[in-house]
């Protein structure tokens, strides 16, 4: 970790390098972490320890990629360490943010609120190239579920029932 990364973390979370030392190593955060459902060897405490020791945090660390910001770790942590915020700062300093995230933050920085034209300007190209067009076939498939014939078919299967599905 270099000085700049710690600066980025400090700006976003208010934690300095030595503040990560309060971690007791109880691994409560790992026990409640939602990312562990995806890849079962994620331990947020690892990231805290390597931050404290000044070691490099790999950009392919599962937690850095998949953290859902659910704050369950913070809620359960005896010391209330705000791990999601640290991860967010890491993501920013490792340039792992998506175009959307960057556009949202930029908009907030300039206007203090979400300003759609700006976001659209920033993300339009990305949306067209990788968003809409790329996933268009899947979207149509998903939408077809809501088409009238599909609805009719589903409701006719269950037999006579009232509006709440009870017999």
């Amino acid at each position: 970790m270099n000085e700049e990364q710690f600066k980025a973390i400090f700006e976003l979370t208010g934690y300095r390098q030595q503040d990560f030392s309060v971690c007791l190593g109880c691994k409560i955060c790992a026990s409640v972490c939602t990312v562990n459902d995806l890849s079962p060897s994620v331990n947020p405490q690892d990231i805290l320890l390597s931050l404290f020791l000044g070691h490099e945090v790999n950009s392919d660390h599962a937690l850095v990629h998949y953290c859902t910001n659910c704050y369950r770790c913070t809620n359960a942590c005896p010391w209330g360490i705000r791990i999601p915020e640290v991860i967010r700062a890491l993501r920013e300093s490792l340039a792992l943010e998506s175009t959307f995230e960057r556009a949202f933050k930029g908009s907030l920085k300039i206007w203090g609120r979400v300003y759609e034209p700006y976001i659209f300007m920033k993300t339009g190209v990305f949306l067209l190239k990788e968003g809409y067009l790329k996933y268009m076939p899947k979207w149509t498939e998903y939408m077809s579920f809501h088409l009238p014939h599909g609805v009719r078919r589903l409701s006719s299967q269950g037999g006579p029932s009232d509006s709440k599905g009870r017999l």
């Binding site: 691994k27 790992a30 026990s31 562990n36 060897s41 994620v42 331990n43």
Partner: peptide, 10 residues
């Protein structure tokens, strides 16, 4: 049901 993290695994 309890989840815990030990030995490098959940």
């Amino acid at each position: 049901t309890v989840r815990y993290f030990a030995g490098g695994d959940l």
